[in-house]
Amino acid sequence: MMKKRCMALTLAAVMAFSVTAFGASNPAQNGKWESAYGNGTVSAEKEMYATTVRSMLSGNVTFTLPQEAQGKKLYLALVDTEDWLSGGEEAFYYGFLEEWKNGDMKMIYMKGEGNVFTVPLTEDTMELKVVYDDERKAGRSISLVALGGSQYADNLFAEYEDQLLVQDLISLYYRPDYKNEIEMVPCTIDVTIGADIMQVDGKSYPLDVPAYINDAGYTMLPMRALVENLPEEVQKKVIWDGQQRTALLLCGMTTYRLTDGQKEAEKDGQLWMLKSPLEIKEGRVFLPLREIVTFWDQSNIQWENETKTVHISADMVHFLE
């Protein structure tokens, strides 16, 4: 079974409020959707994983369904996010779905023909744990799609094309089992307060919003620009959930979850207290310098007061394949 190209839904003329379409450029995660059988919502708790080859990965999705949808079915599949968004063809991945109710597992849905999951809609709220059990691809992510078309019996989205339902529900990374599977990569970073460029290992990268010093006196650095411009060998990724105002980060072997305005964060799933929370300035996420350098086991900071420049040197993890 191969996926079809995404097409955004057409809003019904009678809608009195805006609806987030399922289209690839605007997925409906944590938003509203419509179908010929009424309107509902979908929300997703996305996670970033550092994993061994033998582990199984999962993400949680909650549907709020209109009464008209009951008796219909959802046809769901797992896809590689990058392949889907680029419009390439990709076979659906292996896995299974667990339906939960009030903290208890109600049903397990196994893959059908072509790795498609058929989920009957019987209630107004449905909680699914989506479990991925297929090939691990370092640095890639898995998205959940809803299949359209009348070839599926009682399909909730019979009148629509295949749609991206939750983007980047599960992100895939390797965590090595032994120390000899990694090496340390030295890196230098130079960021000047107010400058429109930063340097990583002597190479310049543009900043549309410069670093600054906040009211509490903390040096604030642009999170995405700093992480994504690290050396190519370094395992890294940033996912921003605008609905939850939460950043998910991977640096080396460590994953982080940080939320706007909150000092309580997570580091590899454990509580991690920040001296100062992340801040959003002109649409960009900034983190305090003192928190950013904890992303690496070995790092050193130097401050050049005359030029107001931060010099960071650090050893970063490179996974040996």
Rank of each mutant, 00 (worst) to 15 (best):
Q235C: 00
P210G: 09
Y212S: 06
G202V: 09
L248S: 07
P231L: 01
I170W: 00
Q235H: 05
G269Q: 08
D208V: 13
T192Q: 15
N305A: 15
K275T: 11
M223I: 04
Y174P: 07
W240R: 02
K179R: 05
F286P: 01
V234E: 11
P210V: 02
I292V: 13
K308N: 15
I292Y: 11
R284L: 00
Q262R: 13
Q235S: 07
G261M: 06
K281P: 01
M223S: 03
K203L: 14
I182N: 00
C187D: 00
I239E: 13
G202N: 01
N180L: 09
L221Y: 13
G217D: 15
V238T: 05
N180K: 10
D208A: 14
S204E: 15
S171Y: 15
T219R: 15
L249M: 15
E304L: 08
Y218V: 02
R290G: 03
H311M: 03
E232C: 06
D201N: 14
E304G: 03
I292S: 12
D168E: 09
S171G: 14
P210T: 04
T309M: 14
L169Y: 02
D215V: 10
T192D: 14
K236P: 04
S299H: 15
L207V: 00
L226T: 11
C251H: 07
V310I: 13
R224K: 06
T294C: 04
L250I: 12
L274Q: 08
V310P: 11
P231R: 05
N305C: 08
D268E: 10
V200A: 08
E232G: 05
I170K: 00
M198Y: 12
Y205A: 04
V293F: 06
C187F: 04
L226P: 02
A225V: 04
P206Q: 12
E183L: 01
Q243F: 02
H311F: 06
D196F: 06
E233S: 14
W296E: 14
D260N: 08
R257I: 08
Y212C: 04
R245D: 01
S299T: 05
N229A: 03
D168N: 07
G283I: 05
E282C: 10
D241C: 03
E233Y: 08
L274D: 05
L248W: 12
I189T: 07
P206L: 02
R175F: 08
G283A: 03
S276A: 12
T309L: 11
L169G: 01
I292R: 07
T192L: 10
V285L: 03
R290I: 02
Y173T: 01
L289G: 13
L221N: 12
L226Y: 13
V185H: 09
A247C: 13
P186M: 10
T294L: 02
Q243D: 05
Q199Y: 15
Y174H: 10
P288T: 00
E232I: 14
D196A: 03
G269V: 15
V209R: 11
I292W: 13
M273W: 12
E183I: 02
I239V: 12
A247Q: 09
K308M: 15
V310E: 05
D190C: 13
